[in-house]
């Protein structure tokens, strides 16, 4: 397993116990289960989320493809709001949101022209200009560093015994290293990556989710290389053929490696997996019936919360029967 391979362990802590929480549009609508369970897990681990008031959409991939300056502006506004609330760290639970914020961070930091123009535009739009650029972390990274597997183990009241999990990270959690600032934990050669940060997950073999869920008693199945394979992402509605094929590969690999459930950490990946899982099952494709659940939902169950508390009913792929069979809900 990837965890065993880690040559150098990044130091714990260093992000802060109290951070600005940027949930993103999805988590306040169709993916509310992720939002609710995230709050539960944060509370249990002794961490504090400060809701970012009046935020706007990060623009995701779609806006970025059409307008560069518009996307920069959207994200700079959110950064400015975080600063106003007194935070230097933003935490986003969605891969797309954390990507967009980190991308804006990259261009603002490396290109002075972008920084100056965005600041004057922000002023024009009635938002405080940025003096300092807040850093964005994915929520998984935050959980791992500010709480860590030990704390999860300590809090676990109902271990996820016998649950075989395929940890699905998706694309943008560790990629690209320019924005996510990841580096290789296992690589032998030192890479020239000036902006890399110590707390980031391994770039090609991420293991934070695996470590947290294993601390909660679950067993991880082998899932490389599909753990970071694209689900279709921004094309999941506009390019159905490609997305369907990608999701089929992900689900079949999970099933054939013996997984009971796929743990996700991005509302778009989750929705894409669930949607195409249903469509593939309607077509009669074999080995695609693995349900999906957010990793926070699984942690919530391990912490002794009920299926209703972590909103397992919201998952369209219906993971309840699997968890019931193992006596977890």
């Amino acid at each position: 397993m990837a965890v065993a391979l880690q040559a150098r362990k990044p130091p714990m802590g260093g992000i802060g116990k109290r951070v600005a929480y940027y949930p993103g549009c999805s988590l306040e609508g169709a993916a509310r289960a992720y939002d609710v369970s995230t709050r539960i897990v944060a509370k249990e681990l002794g961490l504090e989320l400060d809701y970012l008031e009046d935020y706007n959409c990060c623009g995701a991939m779609e806006t970025k493809n059409v307008t560069f300056w518009g996307t920069m502006l959207l994200n700079a506004r959110n950064m400015s709001l975080a600063k106003k609330q007194g935070h230097n760290v933003i935490v986003a639970p969605c891969n797309g949101c954390s990507f967009s914020l980190q991308r804006a961070e990259y261009f603002l930091e490396t290109d002075k022209k972008v920084f100056e123009r965005i600041n004057s535009l922000l002023k024009e739009g009635g938002v405080d200009p940025l003096t300092e650029i807040p850093h964005t972390y994915h929520i998984l990274e935050w959980f791992y560093h500010e709480a860590g597997p030990e704390k999860v183990k300590e809090r676990t009241r109902k271990p996820l015994k016998g649950l075989k999990v395929a940890n699905y990270y998706g694309c943008l959690y560790t990629r690209p290293h320019f924005y996510a600032r990841t580096y290789s934990h296992t690589g032998t050669e030192e890479q020239e990556r000036p902006r890399m940060r110590e707390t980031a997950d391994d770039d090609e073999h991420p293991y934070y989710m695996e470590a947290l869920l294993e601390a909660a008693g679950a067993t991880s199945v082998e899932f490389e290389p599909m753990h970071t394979q694209c689900c279709g992402g921004p094309h999941s509605l506009s390019d159905e053929q490609v997305s369907e094929k990608f999701v089929m590969m992900i689900l079949q690999t999970a099933k054939r490696n013996g997984a009971d459930i796929i743990a996700t950490e991005c509302p778009l990946c989750h929705a894409s997996l669930e949607m195409y899982r249903h469509r593939l099952m309607m077509k009669g494709v074999p080995d695609v019936d693995v349900p999906a659940a957010y990793f926070t939902q699984l942690l919530g169950i391990a912490f002794g919360y009920s299926a209703g508390d972590v909103k397992l009913k919201d998952n369209l792929s219906d993971p309840i029967p699997v968890l019931k069979r193992l006596g977890l809900v």
């Binding site: 706007n56 959409c57 995701a60 929705a271």
Partner: peptide, 23 residues
């Protein structure tokens, strides 16, 4: 092309309301 149509459709929503709605 299809993805551009979707991108613009998405952008319209962001531009109009500041947030998107999945449904």
């Amino acid at each position: 092309y299809p993805s551009k149509k979707f991108d613009k459709f998405f952008l319209e929503s962001v531009y109009e309301y500041g947030r998107i709605e999945d449904g």
